[in-house]
């Protein structure tokens, strides 16, 4: 059972959280976006082994945030509230 730090609620059990994808995955708008860009946004993932920057949502309070953590050791490095559009 991992403990994740919700920036709003503090440390909580992993079961209260939901993974939301890579941080900084900006959405290209428009019907004419090149399909490669759209596919990049929609499907391709960096999926790093090691340090990852990810969007998470704390389902208990509903807030989305960015968490940096190590996908091998499961050490949590930081967690910050979602800064604005796309949380680059």
């Amino acid at each position: 059972m991992q403990l994740f730090p919700c920036p709003f609620c503090g440390p909580r059990d992993e079961t209260e959280f939901h993974y939301g994808g890579d941080a900084g995955n900006a959405r290209p708008d428009g019907a004419e976006v090149p399909i490669e860009s759209w596919t990049n946004y929609l499907y391709l993932r960096s999926n790093p082994k090691g340090t990852a920057r990810e969007i998470w949502v704390h389902m208990s309070c509903g807030e989305f945030f960015v968490m940096e953590r190590d996908t091998v050791t499961h050490k949590v490095l930081s967690s910050t509230a979602l800064g604005g559009e796309h949380a680059a």
Binding site: M1, Q2, D13, T15, F17, T71, V72, T73, H74
Partner: peptide, 13 residues
Amino acid sequence: DRVPSYAQRGNLP
């Protein structure tokens, strides 16, 4: 599991 991971270890939840 709920959390993307490369750790090959079991977890309780």
